[in-house]
Design a protein around this nucleic acid. Sequence first.
DNA 1: CCAATGTATACTGAACCGGTATAATATTAA
DNA 2: TTAATATTATACCGGTTCAGTATACATTGG
Lengths: 142, 142
Amino acid sequence: MQLNQATDYAFRVVLYLARLPIGEVASGLIIAESQNIPRRFLQKIMRLLAAAGLVKSYRGAVGGFALARRAEAITLYDVIVAMEGPLGIHRCLTDRSVCNRHCGEECPVHQALAATQDRLAADLAEVTFAALAAKTNNFNRG
Amino acid sequence: MQLNQATDYAFRVVLYLARLPIGEVASGLIIAESQNIPRRFLQKIMRLLAAAGLVKSYRGAVGGFALARRAEAITLYDVIVAMEGPLGIHRCLTDRSVCNRHCGEECPVHQALAATQDRLAADLAEVTFAALAAKTNNFNRG
DNA sequence: CCAATGTATACTGAACCGGTATAATATTAA
DNA sequence: TTAATATTATACCGGTTCAGTATACATTGG
């Protein structure tokens, strides 16, 4: 019931990219050093974020990464799904047969957890990186 | 970001015990067979539930397990914490130094996830096993 | 060309997961 | 007292995931 380290890193990466001037790219090395992320490990993270369409990559000598869309359109939920796959707090909710094995079609545990998961997802989807970046700016200036 | 199999089983166990007549105990064997849980594995689960004070155990020839308090006073949240320890969807929230390593004292990612986690916990703590047991009765009778 | 970048794949040690095994301890009934 | 039925404690095991590393390759700008 915990987000993994790679997702943790991914939050920082996206937040970092969200604060870059539009049109600017950051190389993997710059991102890794500024965020204290092992450089090799960062490559894995960037590949997942790129595959999910959250960041764009630019190869070559002055390549790097930038957000693939506006920071207003990227949420905590997006990053979590990109890194860890579809949200599924319980086996019931990803594999229906798990639930049925124990308590039949209309399992009350399933129902309660499904409702909880939906609220969690909605909650996470309300937090955009534009909002997070704005907060970062505030306390950095203060 | 997923509850593990043992927690899954634990939900079923507590729900099962919640439906027993008050004063009745169920042996590990009975619980295991009725809920399709490997018998040996169930022992681990019961130990955690007992250690958390959710169930009471009775040793000896006619021993077994029963809820340690009323089903109205046991929630999904209680069982999750008993099985997996304190809720911590993000490292930030259990180990503050993780957060600070990346973005200083007032990390916006930390704040957003903390708020989300609080809502998740509150959500889970609203679902009692008395309520779940009542639903179980309904669809079993229908 | 060549240096700087991202891409792809595979590896590794440690931890965790799901489950099993065995021996010990406690209680009850005969 | 003894046998049967329970829970308790501890250790083990194979497989998967986690966090990170290594290596070889492809692309681009100068």
